[in-house]
Design a protein around this nucleic acid. Structure first.
Length: 519
DNA sequence: ATACATTGCTCCT
DNA sequence: GCAATGTAT
């Protein structure tokens, strides 16, 4: 979450930048932000624990960005989040609860057959797991990309690396989406970097020297600045109701001392300051200054900055708030990606070569695979929207394995059966505008009508799917275009009822989905 | 004027 | 998660 509204507040100091500016430099990457964006395109597959190639799209997305940096001669240093800090566990729990709730709703909608709505919930439910990070780490290893798993917060680790010289393993800038890096005092941050390398640059020096749109931090020091960030509301401590970035800035500007700001706030009747606010405030400040990080040189935990007495007193000696101490061997195993930082269990050692091969495989085949899966999802989604008829676009068949699977899938849903009667029943429903996949179909609708030569009944259960699959596997599939296929939803229900009495369209869909996941 | 709540979007077929 | 927009204080 970062600091509420901080990025918008800092906009006057943020300028466009291209990653090539950092050519020849080491640049840190907040792995979470790219993984989260990458996971957006395969959230359902990830939530359902699918092992299919679509579920690995986040890896492809990530590596695309890594390769972009390398193309511009930028040296990537990937930093992963580690364990949860005690002070953040409240917000983490809340986030986790919301994700779980979304997952429940997603599964419900899926059962109801409303895949479109289910996907919406899956997107809100998807979370980046240590296992996903581990999969990525194996690819990074095989590609010789430097990485480190922070003992706790990646932000703190990145801020620490940004204080080191390059020859000590330091980085010149950080690529992230999280405004916390500003609060940690990172000198150079690139936000919102796109797939071409364009981003928005924040330079700490710029805010302390320039005056823009009436905003000036010239008389601010680092401590006042961190204080302003915490006042505005951070993950460790929500802001006092009524205080945001602007008031936090004015208060710190005016009183130039954090203790005075807190006293003024307590006396001001406009604000209801919680009893323990000053206490929590000190702790939050202490974390931003001294959070525990991993030192690659000594292979042990360290503090972001050497501890200072004034912050120690806020903590009442409770250094665990900065992230509990860990034995060096454990910290090293976590940092090197061999130990799950949350469960503290060793990761299953999948040979790097295998993982690498898996990745090559996605690269080459993803477009074909996804067209098959996309078809299936579109089918499911259409069924759920009570459309009577859906069409599968031309699927050309060749010797490629994935095309065979597409054929199997297609046969599962619509075994060839020329049937003029069914064709006449075809009704073209309006296609939802938000799905370009279907939009294209709408454009081709007229032509499609003419091309229809095969139509539809469906198999009704997974066992039959298995039969079709084995038949298809044995067939030698020649390269030839497949005709348009149609599915009549009423046929589905009819078939389903006749075959096993109580079966309904929902179980149909689940069967299809299950079958598809096995592919 | 500022803060807070709500809605839309991140992927890229 | 962030940003834009609308509403409340």
């Amino acid at each position: 979450m970062g600091i509420q509204n901080l990025l918008r507040f800092m906009r006057p100091f943020i300028e466009p930048v291209h990653i090539k500016k950092y050519s020849g430099k080491r640049v840190g990457i907040d792995a979470y932000s790219w993984m989260h964006k990458g996971a957006y395109s395969c959230s359902m597959e990830l939530c359902l624990g699918s092992q299919c190639d679509v579920a690995k799209r986040y890896l492809k997305y990530f590596m695309h960005h890594i390769n972009l940096l390398r193309h511009y001669n930028v040296i990537p240093v990937v930093v992963f989040d580690g364990g949860n800090t005690p002070s953040k566990s409240a917000t983490e729990d809340e986030r986790h609860r919301r994700r779980e709730a979304n997952l429940v709703q997603a599964n419900e909608k899926l059962k109801e057959g409303d895949v479109g709505v289910a996907v919406e919930f899956f997107r809100k439910a998807v979370q980046i797991t240590p296992s996903m990070a581990h999969q990525l780490i194996q690819i990074l290893r095989s590609e010789s990309v430097e990485f480190v798993v922070a003992p706790y917060e990646a932000d703190a680790q990145l801020a620490y690396l940004a204080t080191l010289e390059a020859d000590q393993g330091g980085i010149t800038a950080v690529i992230t989406e999280d405004s916390d890096l500003i609060a940690y005092g990172c000198k150079s941050i690139i936000f919102k970097m796109d797939r071409f390398g364009n981003g928005e640059e924040f330079l700490m020096d710029r805010i302390f020297s320039a005056v823009t749109e009436g905003l000036s931090f010239k008389h601010f020091d680092k401590e006042m600045f961190t204080g302003m960030c915490v006042l505005a509301g951070c993950d460790f401590l929500p802001s006092i109701p009524g205080i945001g970035t602007k008031r936090a800035y004015s208060l710190v500007s005016k009183y130039k001392n954090l203790d005075r700001v807190l006293s003024v706030l307590k006396l001001d009747k406009k604000y209801r300051v919680p009893e323990d606010y000053s206490d929590s405030f000190g702790k939050a400040i202490a974390i931003f200054h001294h959070a525990r990080i991993y030192d690659v040189e000594t292979k042990a935990l360290k503090h972001l900055k050497p501890l200072e007495q004034k912050y120690l007193q806020y903590l009442n000696g409770d250094l665990d708030l900065l992230g509990p101490e860990l034995p060096s061997s454990m910290a090293a195993a976590i940092a090197e990606g061999n130990l799950n930082p949350i469960t503290m269990e060793a990761f299953n050692q999948t040979p790097a070569a295998e993982s690498c091969a898996a990745f090559d495989h996605i690269d080459k085949n993803e477009s074909q695979t996804s067209s098959a899966e996309e078809s299936c999802i579109t089918i499911l989604s259409d069924l759920s929207r009570n459309q009577d008829i859906i069409a599968i676009d031309e699927i050309s068949l060749d010797k490629n394995k994935y095309m065979k699977e597409a054929l199997a899938l297609t046969k599962l849903i619509a075994p060839s059966r020329c049937n003029q009667e069914v064709e006449n029943k075809v009704e073209w429903k309006e296609i939802p505008k938000n799905n370009p996949f279907k939009k294209r179909k709408l454009e081709n609708q007229q032509q499609e009508r003419q091309n229809i030569t095969e139509s539809a009944s469906v198999l009704t259960n997974v066992e039959q799917a298995g039969t079709v699959w084995s038949q298809v596997s044995q067939e030698s599939v020649e390269s030839k275009p497949m005709k348009k296929l149609l599915i009549d939803k009423q046929e589905i229900s009819k078939k389903a009822r006749s075959r096993n009495g109580r079966s309904n369209a929902k179980s149909e869909r689940n069967g299809i989905l299950k079958f598809f996941r096995r592919l």
